[in-house]
Design a binder for these strands. Sequence first.
DNA 1: TGTACATCAGTGAACGCGCGTTCACTGATGTAC
DNA 2: TGTACATCAGTGAACGCGCGTTCACTGATGTAC
Lengths: 216, 216
Amino acid sequence: MEKKADNIRQTAVPRSRNARGEGEKLRGEIINAAVDVLSALGPEDPFSLRSVAKMANIAAPSVYIHFAERNALLLAVLEKLFAEQVEIRAVAEREAAKAGGGAWERLLARSLASVRFGLENPGHYKVLFEGRVVPRLNDPRIASFGLPLLSRSVELIREIPAQSGRISDDPERLSLLLWSGLHGIISLRINKPTLDWPPATELAEQITCMIIQPQI
Amino acid sequence: MEKKADNIRQTAVPRSRNARGEGEKLRGEIINAAVDVLSALGPEDPFSLRSVAKMANIAAPSVYIHFAERNALLLAVLEKLFAEQVEIRAVAEREAAKAGGGAWERLLARSLASVRFGLENPGHYKVLFEGRVVPRLNDPRIASFGLPLLSRSVELIREIPAQSGRISDDPERLSLLLWSGLHGIISLRINKPTLDWPPATELAEQITCMIIQPQI
DNA sequence: TGTACATCAGTGAACGCGCGTTCACTGATGTAC
DNA sequence: TGTACATCAGTGAACGCGCGTTCACTGATGTAC
């Protein structure tokens, strides 16, 4: 009975195919559908091409017009999600800069943006940072998708004057520690929802201070 | 052909059944088999009752002699893994105490033990702390399995004298922050293996200092 | 302008597979008489 | 002591399902003559 409710849209409104020469549009629609499926996915729900096809309102084999196999679609999805992640943090940084923020304020703005994203989009967060759904893809690009996030963090830390008591002054190391701290907050919040958590952004700001120790 | 190699043991040496009155032994064997399967599981490999049965060298339906359903087995597995986790950290703490360590040294020993465990047993770590394999089980016990880990951390932090510069003195809050920091290090290490990581135990010690700020 | 044809954007049916679970059973072992 | 029977510890075959993927196809639309 629930299945029927699910199918109403698909069966009642059959998809009108793209015009000639615009077949490539479907590629983007499939990626978007996959992104939507991932965001609606429970922590251990399986991800399937068939659910993507249903979400895109196409027949399952149509996915193969644009992707050679399941993994090719997943690679494209990963690329899109990481690109969005880069953009989200850049927006946060620009806003902090517009408000007159220096390197510290901009770094903090990026940190808080990533925490908010993770809590609002746990499905996507787990795909991006917990290896969910996307298995060992041999494609080397996959490892590079997230690098811009890390290197921007290193740049900003480099601009922040070191405090006397700071444990390490290696910006790469501090950047990994900061990422770890933030990831830990987001990941535990998502995966241990029954615990009594203080507001995640408060924790995130606190841990950022602890690790980077800015002169405030 | 690999499948055949897999099966050699099972097909060549059929299991001899337990003696009368000792049927309960199989329950433990099944749990152990499931634990072994989980530890051998790749990040996105599916977990199945059939693979557990194969590992235990029994027929798949035999699982139902001792567990009403898949989830009942998973609950028992979780309970065992958390109990092991409690024990592992207690051992580390006892050793630190034997070496004359105070609350700070014992807390650090527990932290480092958890990091080592995570890196050596990523399959189990993901089940314990990333919600891998084990879905939304409604059983309320599941939420309580890990609580002793956290509360011991709170106790130890309470014993460590606060430093002047400490950002927060709430032991519960510090404990969550410490857990987050350590979890972040382990989880990212596991999930982003292509990055160029410094030794995880070094990072863990560093972040523990940053968060708890002991007087050394 | 009309028509045959090529091309394009998909689709429906089917495949083999592994899954969780059910069911009727088997065969060894202890027990009552 | 012998034997019928109950109990116990499992097993083999089968179910319906959803999965990724393949295959031959359909039907609308642009194009050459």
